Amino acid sequence: MTNCHANPLPSPTEGRCSGTAAALTRNQTVDEADGALTPAQAFDILYAFCAPALVRQAYLLTGRRERACRSVERAFQLAWQRWPEVAHDRDPAGWVRAVVHECALSPWHLFRRRGHVPDPLSDPADRALQRALLLLPPSYRRTLVLYDGVGLDLPETAAETEASTPAAANRLMHAREALAARLPELSDPAELHRRLVRLASAERLGAGEPAGVRTAGERRTRFWTRSAIAFTATIIGATTLTLRTAPMHYLAPVSPGHTVQGLPAQGMLGPLSPEALALRAGLRKEAAGGPERLAPEPR
């Protein structure tokens, strides 16, 4: 298992890291590193020193090479977007490691194709350990990797997993018991650490170039910024159109028509009586000449 603070499995390039890179991982800010560095240079040094170890840690948490590399790249993209905050953090490497673990254990990966299927391993012992690790709850798995793999002490493990120290100790104890129940030889913490280191080194895991990660992060930021601007413009346009076309006063709805029932059919009244004929003739005559003028009678 590897760690940005103390790397027990250094690659040849990691073994030749400069003193500046070491300063970036000893709870110092970037401004305290040796020499004057540009933000891009400081980021590249931090990435080159920590990314290989973080990929192996994420692989222990997920069992998937692709997801481990994607989690590390996403974490460093977020670090580059918030570089002033990360650069002045007390522990830049710890900041990135926490984001890597959060990304690796995100439940959204279950919706991906083969998101929960680990990569096959050739060694039966490594395959058994990987299966036992993945059967642990994510919080237990992360606590075990941080304590028995990375080598953090219990308060640091609790702080990074956002738990109290007793809760972290309880998770660690139950995780060890679950592993020992499936693999009795792992009841020894030293043997558990050795097997975690071997499992993390079982696959050829590599990280991308820091310049590519920075470029991808900037491109992602531009995309979401433009998307937010377009969405805001759409909302403003829809609101303006609604205000221009919506009625400014209340319009009473028109009642629907109803069929009148119970009227006699036309033509069924029969011939008119002589009185009705005389009344009709008188009405027609008055309609043609106009009604008589009414005048008040004097008293």
Rank of each mutant, 00 (worst) to 15 (best):
C4Q: 12
H5A: 05
H5R: 08
P8S: 14
L9A: 13
S11K: 12
E14D: 15
C17W: 13
S18V: 07
T20Q: 10
A21S: 13
A21V: 08
N27A: 14
E32F: 06
A33F: 00
Q41A: 14
L46H: 01
L46T: 01
Y47V: 01
Y47G: 00
F49P: 00
A51W: 00
P52L: 02
L54T: 00
V55C: 13
V55I: 13
C69W: 13
V72T: 01
F76Q: 00
Q77H: 02
L78R: 03
W80Q: 01
R82W: 10
W83P: 00
P84A: 13
E85C: 13
D91W: 08
P92L: 11
A93V: 02
W95A: 06
R97A: 15
V99N: 08
V100P: 00
C103I: 09
A104R: 02
L105R: 06
S106G: 04
S106R: 12
S106A: 08
L110M: 15
R113S: 14
H116E: 12
P118L: 14
P120N: 15
A125H: 07
L129V: 06
Q130K: 04
Q130P: 04
L133A: 03
L134F: 04
L134N: 01
L135W: 15
L135I: 10
Y140H: 09
L144D: 02
V150M: 12
G151P: 00
L152H: 06
D153E: 08
P155C: 05
T157E: 04
T157C: 11
A158M: 04
A159M: 11
T161K: 10
A163C: 12
A167F: 08
A168L: 04
A169W: 08
L172E: 05
M173A: 14
E177H: 01
A178Y: 05
A180G: 10
P184S: 01
P184C: 01
S187D: 15
L192Y: 03
L192M: 09
H193I: 05
H193C: 11
R195V: 06
V197K: 14
V197L: 15
A207G: 02
G208C: 10
G208N: 05
E209S: 13
G212D: 06
V213L: 12
R220S: 13
W224C: 06
W224D: 11
R226C: 07
I229F: 10
I235F: 09
A238L: 06
T242W: 09
R244H: 07
Y250N: 10
G257A: 09
H258K: 12
Q266N: 13
G267M: 03
M268S: 09
L269P: 03
L269C: 11
G270F: 05
S273D: 08
P274L: 06
L277W: 07
G282W: 03
G282M: 07
R284D: 15
E286A: 04
E286N: 09
A287C: 09
G290M: 11
A295E: 07
A295R: 09
P296G: 14
